[in-house]
Design a protein around this nucleic acid. Sequence first.
DNA 1: GTTGAAATATGAGTAATCCTCATATTTGTA
DNA 2: TACAAATATGAGGATTACTCATATTTCAAC
Lengths: 209, 209
Amino acid sequence: MEGTRANEQIASPRRAPSQQRSRERVERMLAAASALIAEQGSDAMRMGEVAERAEVSIGSLYQFFPDKRAIVWALAERYTVESQACISAALKDVTDAEGLRRAFSELVDIYYRLFLAEPVMRDVWSGTQADKALRRLELADSRANAEFLVAVLKRLRPGADPVSLETTAFLVWQMGEAAMRLAISVERQEGDRLVAAYKRMALRELLAE
Amino acid sequence: MEGTRANEQIASPRRAPSQQRSRERVERMLAAASALIAEQGSDAMRMGEVAERAEVSIGSLYQFFPDKRAIVWALAERYTVESQACISAALKDVTDAEGLRRAFSELVDIYYRLFLAEPVMRDVWSGTQADKALRRLELADSRANAEFLVAVLKRLRPGADPVSLETTAFLVWQMGEAAMRLAISVERQEGDRLVAAYKRMALRELLAE
DNA sequence: GTTGAAATATGAGTAATCCTCATATTTGTA
DNA sequence: TACAAATATGAGGATTACTCATATTTCAAC
């Protein structure tokens, strides 16, 4: 809302830290940013504050991050990589309906817990809705995750139209993210109910026909 | 991202225009804002630009809108009121499964067309994800809309647990909004498929048991 | 050990933007 | 006509993302 100019492209890192010293400092910057986001949200996070808390100068911050969004993006990427591995592992060996039911259910639980526990992730995920470049990246990511589901569905329903399976998987996946965002922004008890309802709804769709 | 301070409360209008002259000017301000949002998004919209295009001074703008978000919110409210009437009308007289199927399907189509046609609405709806105050308002609104669905479901499944119906309706509704946002941010053809898939999925859930 | 180039560090300063406020003008009414 | 309330104005205050000229550190080659 403030200095963000056209909100379109994500700039590439200004320079990758190559020395031990700078790598440590970049870690400190990310840790400081993470703490600040957890405390007050990425919107209220001030670059000067990040620098101060990381005990580096504002100039150093910009040496490695081209702009404010790049910091948020760097944090988001960590979660992305981590969860992709998790998803792949959970769905890799599913071969029947019962297996899908179990794996999917567990995956949803894991995500839900993650969302509840990590304020930074929560913030970053909400932010992706408004930031066009982040949104595109998130969609690409979501598609990649949906592919794991598609692979399972192809095994379960060999005759089905591939495009239709893609659509279903992508939609189910995005609905899941929306359900999580919703669940964490209401009372815990209602959130639990919503997540459970999403699970039912998604599985009904995935196992249909 | 810029001047937005703590992103918490929505300030009330500074003053309601009571004279003919000022009412017209406020209309011009809203029209200017709407045009600018359509062109470049609310994030890139500059208050100075709104004032200039509305041919009023920056001071006049702030006479009636306490801050930038208030303008977006004023525009959002118009859509909200309008669509609430539409939803109510569509679902009011539904009494059987086939009726629900038809009404719901039509409602989704209307919403989808609205999203496709109105860049301002699109922008505002994405914004609600990041802005906490707007988000709360949107959730309240969504709950109100879901109530219309609940009323229908209670008629269709008198024996069902009311809390469960509430949860289902609220979830289905929020999923719908997420599906719309998703559909309009991909290629038109894929968007159509996603909306159709959402319809199937939602109806399967609404008509289940 | 010296040297020099590349990497890194610094923070005062620039630019952009939201919003305020003291002041001036217009409107409606007694 | 007089006067208060409503409305209009725009220069300027306050923040904040981000730049850049300059200083320091690292490290490899000799």
